[in-house]
Design a binder for these strands. Sequence first.
DNA 1: TCCCAGGTGTTAC
DNA 2: GTAACACATGGG
Length: 292
Amino acid sequence: MQGSFYTKKIYNMIKLLFSGKYFNIKDTLECGQVFRFLPYKNGYLIKCVDKCAYVYNDGDTAVIECEDRDKAFFYNYFDLENDYEKIVQDAINSGEEIIRKSAEIGKGIRLLNQDLFEVSLSFIISQNNNIPRIKSIIEKLCFSLGEKRTFLGQEYYSFPTAKVMAEKDETFYKSLGLGYRAEYVRAFAELVANGFDLKSLYSMQTEMLKSILISLKGIGPKVADCISLFGYKKTDSFPVDTWIEKVYREDLSGKLTDRKKIASELVERFKDRAGYYQQYLFYYKRSIEDKN
DNA sequence: TCCCAGGTGTTAC
DNA sequence: GTAACACATGGG
């Protein structure tokens, strides 16, 4: 998108407006890529690290309200430089009916550019867990270790830093309801607190990045794919979870059962569009299941 | 009560 | 190399 077509500044707040054709707030937040948002007025409050924005659709327009100093951050966060019309068109012309259908439904989804530490921990927590529980655990984590902030008169808590998290032990993380994932979370925080530079992995090829992530405790192929896609924007990643496995079997008439093989088959087929298609499919499959 | 959730690590063959 | 099982927790 070529910048917002209108902005309005009131005190320290700014209002950014975009075409809503390929920018649907609800779909972008509810599609499973992110966990730290909550309904607010006509839309949502979305939190990332220590920042917050009020986001909503108003008719044909998508609106971001945030502090003036955060406008570049949220512009990048919502991937507003990227041309989603082209991506959706490619999905429609992919030759696969279910991809066409799910992309038409989810054409307003944008793949967020999330914070590396936050997104990595979020998906470590996500393993063998359901979305409402993931959200509540992350909420508890921020409440107990983050810093209190205010946005539009609403209190919220920042995502804790690696340093603060590394000072807590496994017992603490178990008390948040993390179960056996407590040790994975603690170890990851400690690694980053001790200087492991997540940003330095940006320049790597997807395969190399994933092999480094998988070498860490608690990160397997699926979580590595999520971090790679949602954190590092390696769109030649295709996370395969229970829902995607269902789509693969039921809607793509796939025969493979090994999730790693399913992932590589679809990446080979859809290249750097794979990650986008995966997200359309995931959202589609979960939303039709909800209606039952 | 059993089954499931944006799976991974360990063990056994 | 891969198949089976354990792993915490809470919602349906």
